[in-house]
């Protein structure tokens, strides 16, 4: 029986999550908000991985990749938030528009 839901549906969901995450990263001025956007982007990518894993002959490779992505996302969140705390200590703010010491 041909299912009504196919690979493209999942890819579309992944794409939407990715785009919303990207938007979040681009427009947020709160550093924690930016990090949340990154998490969304990674989730979008992960949906694609798992979907590919399901709809292809490559067995569970996609799932394994998504597990690694989740692992790295957790690591990234831990380090990112630690950085945010460190930045907060020196700037007393986590607004990315305030941190402009790189300005030329």
């Amino acid at each position: 029986m041909e299912s009504a839901i196919g690979l493209n549906h999942f890819l579309a969901v992944g794409l939407i999550l990715f785009c919303l995450g990207l938007f979040c990263v681009l427009t947020r001025r709160n550093a924690i908000g930016v990090l949340m956007g990154v998490e969304l982007i990674l989730n979008g990518a992960n949906v694609n991985y798992v979907a590919f894993s399901k709809y292809s002959a490559a067995a569970v490779d996609g799932q394994v990749f998504s597990v690694f992505v989740i692992m790295l996302a957790a690591a990234e969140a831990a380090i990112g938030l630690a950085l945010v705390l460190a930045i907060y200590r020196s700037f007393r703010a986590i607004d990315v528009s305030v941190m402009r010491t790189l300005r030329g």
């Binding site: 979907a51 597990v67 989740i70």
Partner: peptide, 15 residues
């Protein structure tokens, strides 16, 4: 839905 039970579990636990 995609039969990835383990990834779903990890998603719940980690995220």
């Amino acid at each position: 839905m995609l039969d990835a039970d383990f990834v779903a579990g990890v998603q719940l636990l980690v995220y």
